[in-house]
Structures are given as structure tokens and as C-alpha cells.
Computed example of a mutant assay.
Amino acid sequence: MAPRRLGLTGSIGAGKSTVAHLLRARGFTVLDADVVAHEISASVEVTQAVEAAFGSQYLKDGALDRSRLAELVFNHPEQRKQLNRIIHPRVRARMTELEREASGEWIVQDIPLLFENGLDAQMDATLLVDAPLELRVARVLARGGLSRDDILKRDAAQLSGSEKRRRASMTLDNDGDLAQLERRLDQVLDALKVRP
């Protein structure tokens, strides 16, 4: 019997990666769309498609120049759609392969753009990790690498928090410490009857 799917998502800085780690610690197989996207992006097929679509200036040493591409796509929605048309179908195909290899009653699919890409329709349940905007911004700034403006642009490129909450089966508020997050996660998993 095919495993059931729990779609995990959250806006930048919400703590989705922390929740994915906690789910792995509880015995769940977690398939990470970001990790798969990085693997896919390193392929010759993708680098050639990106070069054809955007130009060789978006490659660096034969690989995607991620920071330059991010600057382009988070400032130009049409370019972002074009990049997504190159990357997303390949990511979905690989995620499907990985799911076939996995075992367990439930498989977690960690997908940042779960709702934006309509992938929630393929899930048996969805879990949104959320936190107030200023807390999310502070977390990402503490990690380094992005400015406040970069963070806000990436956040604005996704659905609003209220729309994600409306669509999610359950929302996990991550506005406290790790112990509180773990307690809340266990409560949500019990409520959804999700088991590894």
C-alpha cells in the first residue's frame, strides 16, 4: 500500500527545517524539495536550460550562480515563473522516485511552495509552520546571507500567511522555544493521526 503524504511547508524563517529535523527524529522519512532542487540544479540539463533562458551570466564555473539568479527572479515575477518551469517539474519527478523508495505509513514532503504550486492537492494532510513576520525576519538575519529587503522580497513572493493558514490542515505556531515547539508538534501529529 502506498504511504500517505504529509505536506510540510512554511514561510522563510518560520522554522520549517527545524520541524523537519524533529520529524526525522520521530522516525518519519522526510523528502526535502529544496535539497532535491539543489541536486537537480547541478545537472547539465538544467544549467543548459537556464543559460538558454537567461544567459551565460547566470552561470558560474559551469553551475548556476544562485545569488545572481535569486536577485533576478525575486525582482522579476515573470522570470521567476520561467525558472520555476525549468526546475519544478524535475523536482517533482525526483520526489516521486524518492517516495517510491521510502517506507512507512506516512511520508513527509517538505515543500516550501506547497500551496503556491497547488501540490497540497496531492497530500493527505498539510502542516504549516508559522511565526510572526518580525520574528521570522530576525531569525533569517541571525543566520546571515540575506538583507532585510531580500527576506521581505522572498516572503512577498509567496502566499500570505493568512491564506496559507486557511489552506493548511493544521498550523504549528513556532513563536516560543524548542521545547514548546516539540510539544506543539506532538499535539498536531496526534490530532492529524499521523504516524511514521
Rank of each mutant, 00 (worst) to 15 (best):
E99L: 10
A131W: 02
V35H: 15
V140W: 03
A33M: 05
L141C: 06
A70L: 10
K81L: 15
R94G: 06
A70N: 11
L98I: 12
L59C: 02
L127A: 09
P77G: 00
V50D: 01
S103V: 09
A102E: 11
L141K: 03
L83C: 12
S56P: 00
H21N: 14
V73S: 03
V73L: 05
Q109W: 15
E51A: 07
M95E: 05
E97F: 03
K60A: 10
T96A: 15
L59R: 00
P89T: 14
A93M: 14
P77E: 06
A138L: 13
Y58R: 07
L72P: 00
V46F: 00
L59T: 01
L119M: 15
L72D: 02
D120C: 08
A52S: 12
I40L: 06
P132L: 10
L69A: 01
E78N: 09
I40F: 05
V35W: 14
P77Y: 08
P132W: 08
F28M: 02
M123A: 15
L135I: 13
D130F: 01
L64W: 03
F28Q: 01
L98T: 06
A37V: 05
S41L: 09
I111W: 05
W106R: 01
E71N: 13
T29L: 04
G62K: 08
E39P: 01
L127N: 04
D32G: 05
V137M: 09
N75S: 15
A49C: 06
D61S: 12
T96G: 10
L141E: 05
K81F: 10
E39I: 07
D130K: 02
A70W: 05
H76M: 13
L114I: 14
S67T: 15
E134H: 06
E78Q: 12
L114E: 10
R66V: 07
V30E: 01
D120I: 04
